[in-house]
C-alpha cells in the first residue's frame, strides 16, 4: 500500500514548473525521442502503409458499392446503409453477438485471473496445472472440437447423461435455439488459457519488494491483493479486457464449426463476422459485407474508446 503511495507522490511531484533551461532540455529530448521513434516504428510504419492501409481503404470504398466479387464494383452511395436498417438478420446477429460478448468476456477474464493468481502462488505441480489448463487453447477451433462439442452437448451427450443420473432430462443443448449460444459461451470461457498465461506473466513482473514492504506494514494477503497485485496488474487486466472485447466481437470460427457455418439453429449463433462472411462469400454481396464490417469496426471502436476513457480511473501505470 505504502509503496504504491510513494510512487504516486513521486510522479506528482515530478511535474512542477519548469525553468527555461529545463524547457530547452526537454525540447532537445523530444527531438531525440522523435528521431528514435521513427527508427523503432520503422517496421510498423512500412507495414501500415505497405500492407495494412491499402486493403483497409479498399474495403471502406467497397462498403459504398454493390461489389459482387466477380464484376466491377458500382458506387451506390448509402444503399448498403439503407439495407442495414431493414435487415432482420442483422438485428438477430447483433443481438447474438452482444449477448456473447457481454457474457463471455467478463466470465473468461475472472476465471483466467483467478486461476493465474492461484497458480502464481508457487503451488506444487505448478507447471503441470498450467499446461493442463492451457490445453484447450492449444487445440484451437479444430474439427475435433466441433465433433466433440456435439458429443458433449448433444441431446444424447455427456452433459445430459450426467443430468440423467439425477433424473433430469436435458435438452439438446447445441440444437435448441435457446441454449445453443450458451454452449458457445461455455466453449469460449473454456479456452481461457491465453488470458491466463498473460495474467501469469503480468503477475511475475510485479516486483517482490512491494510485497515485502507491505508485509512489513502488516498487510494480510487480501490487502496485498487489493492494494498491490490488482493495481500493478491493472495494465494487464486492461489489455486482456480490450483485446478480449475486440477478439470476441469478431468471433467467427467457433460458431462456424459448431453450427456448420449456418449460425443456426434459427440464427441463434449468427455472430456478426459469420453473418458478413455469409453475405460476402456465400451470397456474393461483398459490398454489403464490407459495409457490415465497417459497422462492426464502429461498434468495436466505440467500446474500445469507452474502455480507454474509463481506464483513467482504474488502470495504474508505473511510468
Amino acid at each position: 500500500m505504502s509503496a504504491i503511495g510513494e510512487l504516486r507522490t513521486l510522479r506528482r511531484t515530478g511535474r512542477g514548473r519548469l525553468s527555461p533551461a529545463q524547457k530547452e532540455a526537454e525540447a532537445k529530448e523530444r527531438r531525440r525521442d522523435s528521431r528514435a521513434a521513427l527508427v523503432f516504428l520503422a517496421p510498423w510504419l512500412v507495414g501500415l502503409f505497405g500492407i495494412t492501409v491499402g486493403p483497409v481503404l479498399a474495403s471502406l470504398y467497397l462498403a459504398f458499392t454493390d461489389y459482387n466479387l466477380l464484376q466491377d464494383p458500382n458506387f451506390v452511395g448509402l444503399e448498403n446503409v439503407q439495407r442495414m436498417l431493414g435487415d432482420e438478420r442483422l438485428g438477430r446477429s447483433l443481438a447474438a453477438t452482444l449477448t456473447y460478448v457481454v457474457v463471455s468476456v467478463p466470465i473468461q477474464l475472472v476465471v483466467a485471473l483467478a486461476l493465474a493468481y492461484l497458480l502464481d502462488r508457487g503451488i506444487r505441480g505448478l507447471a503441470f496445472y498450467r499446461s493442463v489448463l492451457y490445453l484447450p487453447s492449444l487445440l484451437g477451433a479444430s474439427v475435433a472440437i466441433a465433433v466433440l462439442w456435439r458429443l458433449v452437448f448433444g441431446g444424447e451427450g455427456l452433459v445430459n447423461a450426467f443430468l440423467g443420473l439425477f433424473g433430469i432430462t436435458g435438452p439438446a443443448w447445441v440444437a435448441e435455439p435457446e441454449t445453443a449460444l450458451g454452449t458457445l459461451i461455455v466453449l469460449h470461457v473454456w479456452t481461457f488459457g491465453a488470458p491466463m498465461v498473460i495474467f501469469l506473466a503480468g503477475l511475475r513482473q510485479i516486483p517482490r519488494q512491494y510485497y515485502d514492504a507491505a508485509a512489513t506494514d502488516g498487510a494480510n494477503r487480501w490487502q496485498q491483493l487489493r492494494s498491490i497485485t490488482l493495481p500493478l496488474l491493472s495494465p494487464i487486466i486492461f489489455f486482456n479486457l480490450v483485446l478480449g472485447l475486440i477478439g470476441t466481437f469478431q468471433s467467427f470460427t467457433q460458431a462456424y464449426i459448431v453450427s456448420n457455418g449456418s449460425g443456426g439453429p434459427t440464427d441463434s449463433t449468427l455472430f456478426f463476422s459469420l453473418y458478413l462472411y455469409q453475405e460476402g462469400f456465400a451470397g456474393f454481396r461483398m459490398g454489403y459485407a464490407s459495409a457490415l464490417a465497417w459497422l462492426l469496426l464502429l461498434i468495436i471502436g466505440a467500446f474500445t474508446a469507452l474502455n480507454f476513457w474509463a481506464s483513467k480511473y482504474w488502470v495504474f501505470y508505473d511510468d
Binding site: 522523435s34 510498423w44 483497409v56 467497397l62 458478413l276 462492426l296 511510468d319
Partner: peptide
C-alpha cells in the same frame, strides 16, 4: 517510452487495424 508527435493517433490507428474482420480484407490483400 518515447514522446513523439501523433502518438495517440498512431496508437489508435494500430488498434483500428485489428478491428476489421479478415473476410473483407482477404480479397484486397
Amino acid at each position: 517510452r518515447l514522446k513523439f508527435r501523433a502518438k495517440t493517433v498512431a496508437f489508435a490507428a494500430m488498434l483500428l487495424t485489428i478491428m476489421l474482420p479478415v473476410h473483407v480484407l482477404i480479397i484486397p490483400q
